[in-house]
């Protein structure tokens, strides 16, 4: 088996004895005598719960590690939300610039495509000299990834605004700013929201790679669970990742429906 001693902070000591500090379980039946000394010198019965057997699905894991799980979920949500929001703030002006000036479109799309091709682990590693082992590194990496998806989709949305609509607005006396805010941006919203949904779901999944610098949300739990062969932790954290991704996607879909009521009537 290849060497798995990759570095990384452990947020959880792994599947351990209820009073802590014993060796990781291997999944074999617990063969210790019933009078094995427990912690603090007291005599306790050997644990025979799903944690001791290192099972994949384990209710005791959920109840005993609730705080750790909650902390990881919060960090996961924070990293995702901050990165996608910063990505959005940068992507909108870039897309507008690419729309307004023809010469800007090529470089903007080219650079974001190249950024998107760089594998995530390499992206985080390239940012290491700039940010060190910090949450900013993970956020910066995720922002760069979301840029591609957001810029492409916003630009596609802006380009899809019919020329007749634009001319009608101009004929009604709309200035360039009002045309943009009241006509073009709302019409570009469905495409932009589609990009936002893809960017958010991708970000939720990519946050886990942040475990390499210790800021990976649920990825931290997967990482430490891998090093200690803690099945319940790995499965629980993985499932929670998918749940967050699906929930975020549905939430954005709902927001899109509320923001663009006109698209519902057509379809």
């Amino acid at each position: 088996m290849p060497d798995r001693s990759v570095a990384g902070p452990l947020t959880d000591p792994g599947p351990s004895h209820p009073c802590g500090g014993t060796s990781p379980r291997t999944g074999e039946p617990d063969g210790r005598p019933a009078t094995a000394p427990g912690c603090n010198g007291r005599v306790t019965a050997p644990p025979d719960d799903c944690l001791a057997r290192n099972e994949w699905i384990c209710g005791a894991y959920l109840s005993s590690r609730r705080d750790i799980l909650w902390g990881a979920v919060l960090q996961h949500l924070q990293l995702t939300a901050v990165s996608v929001l910063i990505g959005l703030v940068i992507a909108v002006p870039l897309a507008l610039a690419a729309r307004r000036w023809r010469w800007a479109a090529g470089p903007v799309l080219g650079v974001t495509t190249i950024l998107y091709t760089v594998p995530s682990l390499a992206m985080f590693s390239l940012l290491l000299p700039v940010y060190g082992l910090s949450a900013s590194l993970v956020v910066a990496g995720l922002v760069l990834y979301s840029l591609t998806l957001l810029v492409r989709n916003i630009l596609a949305g802006l380009r899809a605004v019919p020329e007749e609509t634009r001319q009608a607005a101009r004929g009604m006396g709309y200035g360039p700013v009002r045309l943009l805010v009241a006509v073009e941006l709302p019409l570009a919203l469905p495409a932009a929201m589609a990009g936002l949904r893809i960017a958010t779901v991708s970000a939720v999944s990519l946050v886990t790679i942040g475990a390499i610098v210790g800021y990976g949300g649920l990825g931290n739990l997967i990482y430490s669970g891998m090093n200690t062969y803690f099945k319940a932790q790995v499965l629980t954290a993985s499932v929670l990742c998918v749940v967050i991704a699906v929930a975020a996607d549905l939430l954005l879909l709902l927001a899109q429906r509320l923001l663009t009521p006109w698209t519902r009537r057509q379809s």
């Binding site: 779901v201 062969y229 099945k231 993985s238």
Partner: peptide, 15 residues
């Protein structure tokens, strides 16, 4: 496929 973290699948398979 996009919603499932690559890293999670790798570790799950490893175990």
């Amino acid at each position: 496929g996009r919603a499932v973290p690559t890293f999670a699948v790798l570790v799950l398979l490893l175990l």
